[in-house]
């Protein structure tokens, strides 16, 4: 069932199935990036991945691709294998069978030492932020750079730049315990983005946050996708996250400010696809419009809640 619905590589930009074209400015700014031969190699690819813990099957033949520059939203109820999928990409877990490729490189049988190199290009944002309690916000964000022995002056510059990106420069000297839930996640995002990873993964980043804070987190994901050209996996089960990510795009206006615009009725500019999982399998893969038109009862129940 799963393999039939696996998508084939597509160009990063796609048009709305309802028809319509692409505005000239958008085409200009986006197509420059897209015309790149290594883009046909997916950033992440799963090929028939199986994984079980004891007697329980968590992933049952999972296959999908995340193209370069694309944001893939993974939807699904609790316990359907979403977080496990992300851990597999990082090599924190190993599959029982199947293949996992990151940037075309087969990481399935990589040792921990080999994985360290792959992880350098991956930024991971954990559910609760997973900040190091014993380190200040500065040291948390600087963690990767400190480990690499980067000179302190460069570290400080990069940390401040990243904290500005998540709008938290004021909190630089605080300890994680002093931060609110939303701030912790944003520090987690800043920490994951240090070093400019090509792939960013969000594990339910908005769970338990109030709507404005959740919106801020989604804006960061949109900013990453549209302005930093990162490929990402965004695991969530909240439908408003999906609305933001599939309908809005970030642009820089004349004054240099980043603004978020909604895509038009006839135009789909956002490079975001949706993957829906159930019982360790893909039950849907496609755009948000296709998801909403789906006749599957489980999907409908998931989207509308009844």
């Amino acid at each position: 069932m799963a393999s039939a619905e696996v998508e084939t590589p597509q160009p990063a930009l796609h048009t709305n199935p309802n028809g319509g074209g692409i505005s000239e400015e958008a085409a200009e700014s986006t197509f420059q990036e897209v015309d790149d031969s290594d883009r046909i190699v997916p950033a992440i690819e799963f090929r028939d991945v199986h994984l079980g813990f004891d007697d329980r099957k968590v992933l049952n033949g999972l296959s999908f691709k995340v193209m370069k520059g694309e944001t893939k939203i993974i939807l699904g109820g609790s316990g359907c294998g979403k977080s496990t999928t992300i851990k597999l990409v990082l090599g924190l877990l190993k599959p029982d069978s199947g293949q996992i490729l990151v940037d075309g490189e087969d990481i399935t049988n990589h040792t921990e030492v080999e994985m360290m190199k792959v992880r350098k290009n991956i930024g991971m944002i954990f559910q609760e932020g997973a900040l190091f309690d014993s380190l200040s916000v500065y040291d948390n964000v600087a963690y990767r750079l400190h480990e690499q022995g980067v000179p302190e002056a460069e570290v400080e510059e990069e940390v401040r730049r990243m904290l500005r990106f998540v709008n938290l420069e004021d909190a630089i000297d605080k300890m994680p315990i002093e931060l609110s839930g939303g701030m912790r996640r944003r520090v987690g995002i800043a920490r994951a983005l240090v070093g400019g990873p090509g792939v960013v993964m969000f594990d339910e980043p908005t769970a338990g946050l109030d709507p404005p804070t959740a919106r801020t987190i989604c804006e960061l994901a949109i900013k990453l996708r549209d302005l930093e050209d990162a490929s990402s996996i965004f695991v969530t089960h909240e439908m408003n996250n999906l609305d933001y990510l599939t309908s809005e795009y970030a642009v820089v206006d004349d004054t240099g400010e980043i603004i978020y615009e909604k895509e038009g009725e006839r135009l789909c500019l956002t490079n975001t696809k949706i993957l829906m999982m159930r019982d360790g399998q893909v039950i849907f893969s496609g755009t948000d419009e296709e998801l909403r038109k789906s006749s599957d009862t489980y999907i409908n129940k998931f989207i509308r809640g009844y």
Partner: peptide, 18 residues
Amino acid sequence: GSMVVSQQIDAMRSLGTD
């Protein structure tokens, strides 16, 4: 143990530290 439970060990590994 607390670091494992709050995913700090996973975070550490994902940031490239053993």
